[in-house]
């Protein structure tokens, strides 16, 4: 039996609004999550076109030096509390671009990444697990 507070939190918690920042193959890997087969909206994730409304910043694929500067600007525009998700092997270790001179190898060296979702590409289930963890995180905040 969940506590009264938890029930209350469940009632008032809002959907998480996601801002997508995708490089390279990033978006194609997330399309199944957005599409009708898995449908991210039923899990309470909504894509927003502006970082100022976003709770979550989805970063998928490797960042080049040029795109990293833009990613930082996007991050700075988001309101607190904010969560950064790194999607795929490339954000964690550079992936297959581990020896490329122009891509960032470990995203958390440059941005405060809350959670990495491993995989190349990650399964939609892994993305939803991350989503559930964000909800837990929100509940623990209060």
């Amino acid at each position: 039996m969940p506590s009264e507070k938890a029930i209350k939190m469940n009632r008032i918690i809002k959907a998480i609004w996601v801002f997508n920042w995708f490089n390279s193959c990033g978006f194609t890997e997330l399309i199944p999550v957005v599409g009708s087969r898995w449908d991210m909206e039923r899990f309470g994730m909504i894509i927003t076109p502006t970082p100022r409304h976003a709770d979550v910043l989805f970063i998928a694929g490797y960042q080049t030096w040029k795109s990293l500067e833009r990613a930082k600007r996007v991050y700075e525009q988001m309101a607190e509390p904010r969560v950064v998700l790194g999607l795929g092997a490339c954000t964690m270790s550079g992936g297959m671009y581990w020896d490329s001179y122009n891509t960032v190898k470990r995203l958390s060296d440059y941005l405060p990444v809350t959670m990495y979702i491993p995989g190349c590409p990650p399964r939609p289930e892994a993305v939803f697990e991350a989503c559930v963890k964000i909800f837990q995180h929100v509940k623990e905040l209060k």
Binding site: G94, W98, D99, S100, Y101, V104, K105, R106
Partner: peptide
């Protein structure tokens, strides 16, 4: 030698 360069810069 980009492999050397990457080692120096990122790792």
């Amino acid at each position: 030698n980009w492999r050397e360069y990457v080692k120096e810069k990122y790792y």
